[in-house]
Design a protein around this nucleic acid. Structure first.
Length: 102
DNA sequence: CAACTGACCATCC
DNA sequence: AGGATGGCCAGTT
């Protein structure tokens, strides 16, 4: 099991400009899997902690972080996003303002 | 081998 | 506007 899914997805994620965010659906589309947003979630889930992939720039279609509000993962992602200039109000990110390729 | 699960999404009510 | 429903697809149980 070493499908290129993950490679394609990671590559697409790596193309997200700093200060912008993309949804799983967008990434899936860019990677060549129009109906497999879930593949993106999987690909990101198996990333090692020392990865250089900006996984934090990937959020769900609701414009929110796809983690339990109190989890460490959530906090880390929120921190990384804010430090890149992305504003999170009430746990929600404005895709209109920070969405990649609108 | 069948069923469940999940860092999801679009549509319908 | 918020909740339920169906579809997707690969890795686990």
């Amino acid at each position: 099991m070493q499908p290129d899914y993950n490679i394609a997805i990671w590559t697409a994620v790596g193309h997200i400009p700093v200060g912008k965010v993309a949804t799983y659906g967008q990434i899936a589309r860019l990677a060549g899997f129009p109906n497999s947003a879930r593949a993106v979630g999987r690909a990101l889930a198996i990333l090692p902690s020392d990865t250089r992939i900006p996984w934090h720039r990937v959020i769900n279609a609701k414009g929110q972080i796809s983690f339990p509000i109190a989890s460490e993962k959530f906090k880390e992602q929120a921190l990384r996003l804010t430090s890149e200039g992305i504003l999170i109000k009430q746990g929600k990110i404005s895709l209109t303002l920070f969405g990649w390729e609108l």
